[in-house]
């Protein structure tokens, strides 16, 4: 992918903070948050990466600091290749990243999703609300300190809660999650029916 490699070389020459990022597929760069919008604009206007394909986040817990990284995937509709741009959030407690909605209107919902799942704020975003979970939801589900099963939470509609007396519960895992790891469990041994099914969310597990 010569076009992308040219672009990466040009970015490194222009911004001292831009470094190459280890990548198994597409060329990738690490960018300081302060240079992010300039780098994205240069990739779009000078190198033809005109499509913002994806914005997502990474929570590195328990790994290195800083804790949160925002990752952008740009696609070129002329040379048909991708380049990846990653920027660390300086503050672990209230992570922030400048918004790319000024460059691509389509960044709007991507950034709302990153905010919803990771709690990373995008100052300057026109409408930073949750997009998948309901507005009052208090947690950020893709953070590493959030359990897979979820946390008990009230549902958004007070009338429905009063009527049904139910809320969002921690989902019963019943010995799961049943994921295959390299050199790990045998999936046929790990099926739910191979596990102890004497307990569920309605009949709690005996203490013994």
């Amino acid at each position: 992918m010569p076009a992308a490699l040219d672009a990466v070389a040009a970015l490194k020459g222009r911004w001292a903070g831009v470094t190459e990022r280890a990548s198994l597929d597409h060329p990738a760069v690490n960018v300081p948050a302060s240079d992010l919008l300039g780098v994205l604009a240069a990739l779009r206007d000078e190198h033809g990466y005109d499509l913002l394909a994806d914005v997502t986040g990474v929570d590195w817990t328990p790994g290195p600091r800083p804790r949160f990284t925002v990752v952008y995937h740009l696609f070129s509709t002329t040379s048909h290749d991708y380049v990846r741009v990653a920027a660390d959030c300086a503050d672990d407690a209230s992570p922030e990243m400048p918004t790319a909605t000024g460059l691509w209107r389509g960044a709007d919902w991507h950034e709302r999703e990153v905010f919803d799942m990771f709690g990373i704020r995008f100052p300057g975003h026109p409408d930073l609300r949750r997009i998948l979970m309901w507005d009052e939801y208090p947690h950020f589900p893709l953070r590493k300190d959030f359990p897979l099963a979820g946390i008990e939470t009230a549902l958004p509609d007070a009338q429905v809660v009063a009527e049904t007396k139910t809320g969002a519960i921690a989902a019963p895992m019943m010995g799961g999650p049943f994921v295959a790891r390299e050199g790990g469990i045998n999936m046929s041994d790990a099926e739910p029916r191979a596990k102890d099914e004497s307990w569920s969310e309605r009949r709690p597990k005996p203490d013994a």
Binding site: L132, M133, H139, P141, F146, P147, L148, A149, G150, I151, V160, T164, T166, A168, I169, A170, A171, P172, M173, M174, G176, P177, E201
Partner: peptide, 17 residues
């Protein structure tokens, strides 16, 4: 029952409501 979605986002059976 919620099916395969043992997850923070899915109602674990519509009989809860």
């Amino acid at each position: 029952t919620g099916g395969m979605y043992r997850s923070y986002a899915v109602l674990q059976g519509v009989d809860r409501i």
